[in-house]
Design a protein around this nucleic acid. Structure first.
Lengths: 360, 360
DNA sequence: GTGAAAGCGCTAACAT
DNA sequence: ATGTTAGCGCTTTCAC
């Protein structure tokens, strides 16, 4: 493994007729060396294809220029977008990304976090997860940790998260306005903290809208496409005569819509459906999916800012930021068949080419 | 950056009343130490929360236990599935993954590859790309390199790729059988090697089926959803009276289908549409998408096998493996309106929960 | 401005 | 079985 007859700073020094210190200087502090020697050394570096050994460098520097990123499921577009945002802006700062995909497994999650202390990383960005809490307290004593959409009441670390409360209120109000008044929630995994949070605010929103509200209106299933179907079936089996479904994520919503189509349920005519996190495919399914604008890429970038800030001011006060979620009204909530379709209101926002958001 | 008052092997040694060599041994070769001392040392390690410094380790070992993975677009499910496969099986071998998302940019691609020599990685897995060639020859002298779906005639490295020829033949034959005889190809970016390859075999397949075949039947656009629409418009503007469209990827196909729906073109009635690489959402769009089974996760895992093999036998002969692509017939090619719908043939394969393929 | 030399924390060969 | 010691390749004082 690794490599063979390496060229070292020492060889470069000899060939250039200078000391290794000088070579190191032209590498890290070029101004502090005479023009002549600098060029001479650079020449040798070039011709020998010399590359400083990163491990040796790290050993001296105590820095790896690498950030670990942990996601529950790299296949979910929402997370891959966040990862893209992170990689994009980390790259500009010459950091690389060590990616951990925990496959929504709590064991893996714990394993990754506890293993991190002996990995060559300068920081960790942990995105969502299984919903069971992990303490980042210990790890955060060694390296900066930033949490994205990861409910956590114990770790003293920077946190970014969507405002579930506002989001649920927006969605419920929108559906009510469009004439869907018997609304259910198809949620993620039971026990997941995000799922709990969405459930709580869902109920709260129903109450504030004066809509019927019972625990039966919430179905817990899971976070993937296939669980959308399972969730819908469970919901239908409860005979609640629901006419609107809010889903905890767009992916779940797509699963629900697909299953509904198979059952001959017309959307939005028989049933309104809404997602939560603006997956790129939401505009490409039929009917197009009403959802909330979750700016994955931006959040990824913001998390990078947070972590870089902490490198500079390790003692800065703890960040606790929430994102609001503007409504993206599309066809899937256009109104029940009887009420006729309504044209979308203003303020709706859509990405242009969601599969290649390479802005800024 | 990094960390503060680190605990070193030296401290552990002192507290345990042994030499640093012994501590190192209990870390790497526990059997070679007396039970008593071993436990004593372990106790101290535990209580001091000691973690061996990975950089120092790497410097001695010349191994980082890290593999770089370069993809053109982490948001595309096909690539994120490959990445998942790679991470999954690399993890079992205690390797981490350094992820590079080049955002389909050739400059980034070059930059990543040339920068890799001074990164803490033991190998590279490069997945597809912009289609412009990069030589991996130099890099492969230092670390093993494995290419996935990356046409390359110059680098002496291990290669895995789909069989475009077979794939195109399968698709064209299928469409012809279903009654779509005026077939066009909506391809990826002009100049991309994969696109060229698919185009060549598309023509070849048309000829073998005795179907009309002119260069106009091929439209080059791009690899994302939005380009599907662009490609369709371009194709329609050519007035070729096409009734079947093969797309170079499923993502493009979904873009095409979406655009077709907007234009009032009925699929599969007016037009048959097929994709190429079995994106997880293919079953969830409407109509469901006919495609080829591209086993992303498996290919990812296979690439890991290849790279591990090369660690063991650096001199092993060059791998050049191609994957066949079984047909997945779905609704989007069910036959033109006039011919009535045909039930899907046997041998069709579908994943159960494509968003969470955590097998083996 | 430049060189000599002392680490950085660990592994492994060598000696006991 | 265990300790001593010499690196691994680079950065960084500290003199000159």
């Amino acid at each position: 493994m690794g490599s063979k007859n390496r060229i070292t700073i020492k060889e470069v020094a000899q060939r250039a007729g200078v000391s290794i210190a000088t070579v190191s200087r032209v590498l890290n502090n070029p101004e502090s060396v005479t023009d002549e020697k600098r060029e001479r050394v650079r020449g040798v570096i070039e011709q020998l294809h010399f590359n400083p050994d990163p491990a040796a460098r790290a050993l001296s520097n105590r820095s790896f220029k690498t950030i670990a990123v942990m996601v529950p499921n790299i296949i979910n577009p929402v997370f891959s977008l966040i990862v893209r945002g992170i990689i994009h802006s980390l790259d500009k700062n010459n950091f690389d990304v060590l990616l951990y995909d925990t496959e929504e497994d709590f064991g893996r999650e714990q394993q990754v976090v506890s293993g991190l202390v002996q990995k060559m990383v300068d920081g960790l960005i942990a995105v969502a997860g299984t919903g069971k809490e992990i303490s980042f307290t210990e790890l955060s004593k060694r390296i900066p940790v930033v949490l994205i959409d990861r409910p956590d009441n114990v770790s003293p670390v920077d946190k970014l998260s969507v405002d579930d409360r506002e989001g649920m209120h927006t969605l419920v109000a929108h559906m009510a306005e469009r004439g869907y008044t018997r609304i259910a929630l198809v949620n993620g995994t039971k026990g997941n903290i995000s799922a709990n949070s969405r459930a709580r605010y869902f109920q709260q929103a129903l109450e504030e809208q004066g809509l019927p509200c019972s625990p039966e209106q919430i179905v817990y299933s899971g976070w993937t496409l296939a669980y959308g179907k399972i969730g819908l079936n469970e919901l239908l089996s409860r005979n609640l005569n629901v006419n609107g479904i809010i889903c905890a994520t767009d992916i779940i919503a797509m699963g629900v819509m697909h299953a509904a189509a198979e059952l001959g349920i017309s959307i939005p005519g028989d049933m309104g459906v809404a997602g939560f996190d603006n997956s790129p495919l939401g505009e490409y399914v039929s009917p197009t999916l009403t959802t909330l604008q979750y700016s994955s890429i931006e959040i990824g970038k913001e998390s990078v800012r947070a972590i870089l800030r902490r490198f500079e001011e390790p003692g800065a006060s703890l960040l606790k930021q929430t994102y609001s979620l503007p409504l993206i009204a599309r066809q899937s909530t256009q109104g029940p068949a009887s009420s006729g379709s309504v044209s979308p209101p203003g303020g709706t926002q859509e990405a242009q080419d969601p599969w290649k958001e390479t802005d800024s």
